[in-house]
């Protein structure tokens, strides 16, 4: 991510260098390929438990993590594969985790919903809707208390907005932000459905950004299918939060073109036409068209990126498949810190 960012003087959406867009396209294609491989692995019985893929939402994390600075923290719910890949975790380790292997990024102890790479700033994927939000607010307070200028990128879904944990945490964030003690960027990934229930069917006030008004947190919306729009918001807002120590919320309008979980038949709760309409605005498709239109890449380059991504992910799958399961002794490790000999016998 060495390419320079190009902001207009007015801070509006701007042309991004071709090189940078191609780079982001590559990342998004890799995420898509990874998620498709996961769906396959799930159907084959190689991946257990729950599996939540990011297909359709790639531009969101790709855009925001582009503005991630060393020391910042990312926290999200269980749709977390893309965040790990974008922060630089080797796809092999991510896939191995999903395959339940000892070489996985959390040693086979968390699975798809609990990806952590603390060294790179990924403070976790969490499985209880809304439950991670207070943690991210606590990170923000801690980073200011410790005298750094790091920020939290706190991802949450539209489904978390009706949860008490969200409201309690947003209230605290607004409060602590008054003293510049809460550099937390709330990134609401509004993919329109909390599992199978649409936003309209879960809250009477569907302007999710505006929910933050109640807590004194400034907010706005952005088109999450347009990577350039996301990049602009990300660059501007991460710096504002870093500068002020005050939280900010951005509702990113996106769409999950895959089922909620790999075992979900999503036609039951969505109209075919709606899915088709959103697919036309697929973030990868849109960017690809832009690259072709602007001669930033030709068909050959696109094919090359796609086949390289496939190869990269195929290697990850191979690694995961061939890795060993965790050592059986790992069952009792990592329960307590500072306890080498914990056996479960008190």
């Amino acid at each position: 991510m060495s390419a320079e960012k190009e902001h207009s003087e007015h801070g509006g959406a701007v042309a991004t260098s071709s090189e940078r867009l191609v780079d982001l396209y590559k990342k998004m294609v890799e995420i898509r390929a990874f998620e498709e491989a996961c769906q396959k692995g799930f159907r084959q019985g190689k991946i257990g438990g729950y599996l939540h893929v990011y297909i359709g939402q790639e531009a969101v994390a790709t855009g925001f993590i582009d503005s991630f600075k060393e020391g910042d923290k990312v926290i999200t719910a269980y749709r977390d594969h893309a965040h790990a890949l974008l922060l630089g975790t080797d796809p092999k380790e991510v896939m191995a985790e999903l395959y339940g292997k000892g070489t996985g990024m959390v040693k086979g102890k968390g699975g798809s919903m609990h990806l952590f790479d603390v060294e790179r700033g990924l403070m976790g994927g969490y499985g209880i809707v809304g439950g991670h939000i207070p943690l991210g607010v606590g990170f923000a307070y801690a980073m200011r208390y410790q005298g750094t200028d790091h920020i939290t990128q706190l991802y949450l879904g539209d489904g978390a907005i009706s949860n008490g944990a969200f409201h309690e945490a947003a209230n605290l964030a607004g409060l602590w932000g008054k003293d510049g003690m809460c550099p937390c960027l709330f990134i609401i990934e509004n993919n329109q459905y909390g599992m199978g229930t649409s936003v309209e069917r879960t809250t009477a006030m569907t302007d999710l950004a505006a929910k933050f008004d109640a807590y004194g947190i400034e907010n706005e919306k952005v088109d999450g299918m347009d990577i350039e729009a996301v990049l602009e918001s990300a660059g501007r807002l991460t710096e504002q939060v870093r500068e002020t120590g005050k939280p900010y919320a951005i509702e990113v309008l996106t769409y999950r073109t895959a089922p909620h979980g790999a075992a979900d038949f999503f036609e039951k709760y969505r109209e075919k036409e709606e899915i088709e309409e959103w697919r036309k605005r697929d973030p990868i498709g849109l960017l690809e068209q832009k690259l072709l239109d602007n001669d930033a890449a030709d068909e050959e380059k696109i094919d090359e990126i796609r086949s390289e991504a496939k190869e990269l992910i195929a290697e990850a799958v191979k690694f995961a498949d061939e890795s060993e399961e965790p050592e059986i002794d790992e069952l009792y490790t990592d329960v307590y810190a500072g306890a080498d000999e914990y056996t479960g016998e008190e």
Binding site: K73, M123, G131, I133, P134, L135, G136, V137, G138, F139, Y141, A142, M143, Y145, Q146, G164, A165, E168, A169, N171, L172, L175, D179, M181
Partner: peptide, 26 residues
Amino acid sequence: PKRVIDTPISEGGFTGAAIGMAMLGM
């Protein structure tokens, strides 16, 4: 007040925030 923090009546919120603080070494 930064070390002795009065909170709203919001047990889930402030306990969760405290967990986050602890995860970063506080």
